[in-house]
């Protein structure tokens, strides 16, 4: 175990050279690289911080815009709601008016229908009454009725004797029509009475099963009837006049409402 001092000196020199070499090719590049990377990281961190601040500012602006939009939206919603409320009220009022009008029209229509129905009912009732009366009288009438007509013919025809004479003229032919054939007595009586009114007439007796019970005299174009239908028609005229006067009163009462 000995020390070679030349080798010692050489190794010291080698160590110094190695220190320089490693400083030149190892430590400095590595440390500089680390420093540069740290500086770059710091720059990036700074840039990131700035970007973050910028993003936060943008975010704050965005939130502000959102708040403004929300406030505007709320106001717009309120306005729209108020307008809708007003519109709704107007529509409701309009609908109410329409409903009232339609109800009024409907009520009027109902009243008209009611009146119409009542009128129709009265009319039908009147017709039924007439029909029943006609039927009752027809069923109850017989040749006695027509002979009774003949017996009282003078009271019926005397007021119109002037007209009959004018229509028939001298020696005219008069057809006396009944539903049932008149007896000989009734025929003679009728002939006598008619010749008192219209002297010199020629009387022809005729029967018509479809004819209403009673007597019909035909002379030329004129015709004088004293039958059940004559009475029924009179009753019908009375009923019509009564219904007409009642309808006029109802209409007047409705207009008054």
């Amino acid at each position: 175990m000995s020390v070679d001092w030349i080798t010692v000196i050489a190794q010291i020199a080698n160590l110094l050279v190695l220190i320089w070499l490693l400083k030149r090719f190892l430590y400095r590049p590595i440390l500089d690289g680390i420093d540069a990377r740290e500086a770059e990281i710091a720059d990036r961190m700074t840039a990131a911080t700035q970007a973050r601040e910028q993003a936060e500012n943008v975010e704050a602006g965005y939130h502000e815009q959102v708040e403004i939009f929300r406030a505007g939206e709320s106001a717009m919603t309120d306005t729209t709601r108020q307008q809708a409320e007003v519109e709704r009220e107007a529509l409701l009022a309009d609908a109410q008016v329409r409903i009232d009008t339609e109800r009024k029209d409907w009520t009027t229509h109902l009243q008209h229908e009611e009146q119409k129905y009542m009128s129709e009912l009265h009319r039908v009732g009147g017709k039924a009454l007439l029909s029943l009366t006609r039927k009752a009288l027809g069923d109850l009438s017989d040749e006695t009725l027509e002979e009774r007509v003949v017996a009282h013919i003078d009271t019926k025809f005397i007021p119109m004797a002037q007209e009959l004479r004018h229509e028939a003229g001298e020696g005219a032919e008069i057809i006396a029509s009944t539903r049932d054939p008149l007896s000989k007595t009734a025929q003679d009586k009728l002939l006598v009475k008619l010749q008192q009114i219209v002297p010199g007439l020629k009387l022809i007796f005729d029967t018509d099963a479809n004819q209403s019970p009673g007597l019909i005299l035909r002379m030329g174009g004129a015709e004088v009837a004293w039958t059940l239908d004559t009475y029924i028609e009179g009753l019908d005229t009375l009923l019509q006049e009564h219904l007409a006067s009642e309808s006029g009163m109802n209409v007047g009462a409705d207009n008054g409402h």
Binding site: S2, W5, T7, V8, A10
Partner: peptide, 12 residues
């Protein structure tokens, strides 16, 4: 493994 080297290092 040389004493010269370690001596050189120690001297350094």
């Amino acid at each position: 493994a040389s004493l010269s080297t370690t001596a050189a290092l120690a001297l350094s």
